[in-house]
Nucleic acid binder design. Sequence first.
DNA 1: ACCTGAACACCGTTCAAGT
DNA 2: ACCTGAACACCGTTCAAGT
Lengths: 232, 232
Amino acid sequence: MTPHTEPRSRRERPAKPALSRAGILAAAMEIMRAEGLPKVTMRRLAQELDTGPASLYVYVANTAELHAAILDELLGTLAAPAEGGWHERLEALLTEYTTVLFAHPALARSALVARPSGPHYLGLIETLLTLLAQGGVPDRQAAWGVDVLLQYATATAAEHATRGETADTRDEWDALTRALHGAEERTHPRTAALAAELLSGTPQQRLSWGLRVQIAGVLHTPAPQSTEGATS
Amino acid sequence: MTPHTEPRSRRERPAKPALSRAGILAAAMEIMRAEGLPKVTMRRLAQELDTGPASLYVYVANTAELHAAILDELLGTLAAPAEGGWHERLEALLTEYTTVLFAHPALARSALVARPSGPHYLGLIETLLTLLAQGGVPDRQAAWGVDVLLQYATATAAEHATRGETADTRDEWDALTRALHGAEERTHPRTAALAAELLSGTPQQRLSWGLRVQIAGVLHTPAPQSTEGATS
DNA sequence: ACCTGAACACCGTTCAAGT
DNA sequence: ACCTGAACACCGTTCAAGT
């Protein structure tokens, strides 16, 4: 009848392993795969690792940095396709990148603000630069182009994948649909005429077209010449 | 010495006005202008209106919808420039749109997920469609193009404006800078060669170039023909 | 140096109950 | 129909204190 007095430190985990950045990241990936990024919080992660949230801050600067690291990890699964010309391969690689992010919309949203800087992200940049060079795109144009291409893919994933995920964003989208179809002929003639077109196409068609728009644009738009000094 | 027993309902506000969607929105705009969007929370807003957060849900579906309404309100300040050709005016309008969002980065982030559907947003779409029609862009191409143009502007604001806003995102960006400059010649030859170019240009130069990329891309990329049925 | 408990300062949303 | 108090179920981050 005497109450248990043994420490409750270990729950089922056999021997609480020492904390490490790699261990934290691994636990984060596991939670994300099982329950999605929104559940990957400092508190939840700490709970999973059988410690307090404060302990994580020794290895991870903050939530944004953690998310960036997760994305970099995820990009390790990208395989650059080896078939076809540079244009085809460019489109395929970016489609693959977008597809990965489609599965993790919340991550795409994070990535827009806090870019990863890990090995897989650098590898992606290198591949994109190489493909653009094969396409004969001048250096600065290619360098700036990488940004545009990745931004389009990331933003599309961020924006699109939420559609229908929660009831909230569903409502939001319905509201826009109704607004477009309700546009008055007299005040908004173009919108009224093109309401159906504005909403047409499958996500895949839109993505494919959008990527070709980016590639064509990068190809056809020379960068300004004399730019010295870093951004901002 | 007897304690006050009068109700503490009104603080300094003279006569608590009845709640309304317009009133809520007005209060939201005020808080945002004074303290930024992150402070525009349901709780803070309720406090400002001298009520509890639950009361707001009669007029506002959720936070996302509130943010979309705020953005639409903000777009009311946009003035479509009347000078120049369609291309110039298109670029100027989109620059203006981006500039407005630059001042409210958190709003840009919201806008990527929950698009506004108010009168000012519809007006913007109408103007964009009109300008593209003047440029001779075919209907579906123009309709899809509007999406691409607004997405680029919104994503750029979302991404860029946070740079340096908080210490966190500063760190994040420094990490990428260091990673790019540290790219190894042997494994990442293109990245190593173009590290400076990847980070070159002012935000304004990047935006201007990016917008021209979008316009050129939309102009040069035909939309697929047979698309029946709505998105998703 | 690494780890922790506890606290600080918040969130969005729901629900039963009132008017 | 509109409004509310109170609760539910959480957050990120910091800091003093321990080992």
